[in-house]
Design a protein around this nucleic acid. Structure first.
Lengths: 148, 148
DNA sequence: ATCCTATTGCGACTGTGTCGCATTAAGATG
DNA sequence: CATCTTAATGCGACACAGTCGCAATAGGAT
């Protein structure tokens, strides 16, 4: 994922072990792919990369593992404005939420961290009485290079 | 859609006519459904309701019309955290953007308008050099009734 | 080494969304 | 009002994401 990888690889595995969740050959491969990815991947891409590490892996195992990681809050699911098909994209969840900007012309994805975003979430929790689990802000527009 | 319907029904039709876009029986039915909807509908629901007005309408016509309305910025496409399947939901685009809150337990959708959201978008445009076309903030969490 | 059970692969399935093509009908024109 | 052009439609077939039940497999605790 974007943002320099400051996480220790293997963090997922430790986290899951701590909860008594069984570690398998297939999960190791999938976790590895997600933890070392340098861009947002969809389920199909994760499958193809994981198969290079363990060719037997099935599509449904990827979906089941993504579900597991989502449930435990280790990854976030993104749409990235569906620039290319209907698939979802995944990224490691970091300490800090960030906004995703998708350029509707060149397709580049930019990430942006903002204190205003944090304040906005606080406002929502207070004024709407919500306990926020996931906050996804995705913006479609034109980047500085593509802006007419 | 939520937010009291302050729009004049038929606004879509006027807008499209002004651009020389052909008005058909089918489109009238679909526009009618979207303009009078009191909640967020997905393509399948729009199809079923439109068929009550004009039983001949085909699925692909609904998708093509939704595409048309999207391209002209008359509707917004939402995911609503995919609480129920993978479909997209649609709503009339209003003058003011709003945030969608989806309760992960009871499934209720709440809308929220915030000046902070507007400031955040301005910040993104300035600091990232983006021209924003669509901004979608969706929050999954637990509403005041469902919060444990 | 054994055993329990979580996890897997497989196959079949559902549902969303897309597309090409022949037909139909909007609505502009005279 | 009749004619004509072409945008829009219905149909069918398709691509692809994601899900699920079930029998077989393999973690890892004992």
């Amino acid at each position: 994922m974007p943002f320099a990888n400051t996480e220790i690889p293997g963090k997922f595995q430790a986290f899951l072990a701590q909860r008594g969740i069984r570690m398998t050959e297939q999960r190791r491969a999938i976790l590895n792919v997600i933890e070392t990815a340098k861009k947002h991947l969809d389920a199909g891409q994760i499958l193809r990369r994981a198969r290079k590490l363990d060719p037997s892996i099935d599509r449904s195992t990827v979906y089941r593992t993504l579900g597991l990681l989502k449930r435990h809050g280790l990854i976030d699911e993104l749409d990235l404005m569906h620039l290319d098909g209907e698939a979802h994209y995944y990224e490691r969840k970091l300490n800090r939420d960030h906004i995703h900007l998708a350029c509707l012309r060149c397709g580049r994805i930019t990430e942006f961290v903002s204190d205003l975003f944090e304040s906005l979430k606080e406002q929502v929790e207070k004024e709407c009485g919500y306990r926020i689990a996931v906050a996804r802000l995705e913006i479609g527009g034109y980047c500085s290079k593509c802006r007419t």
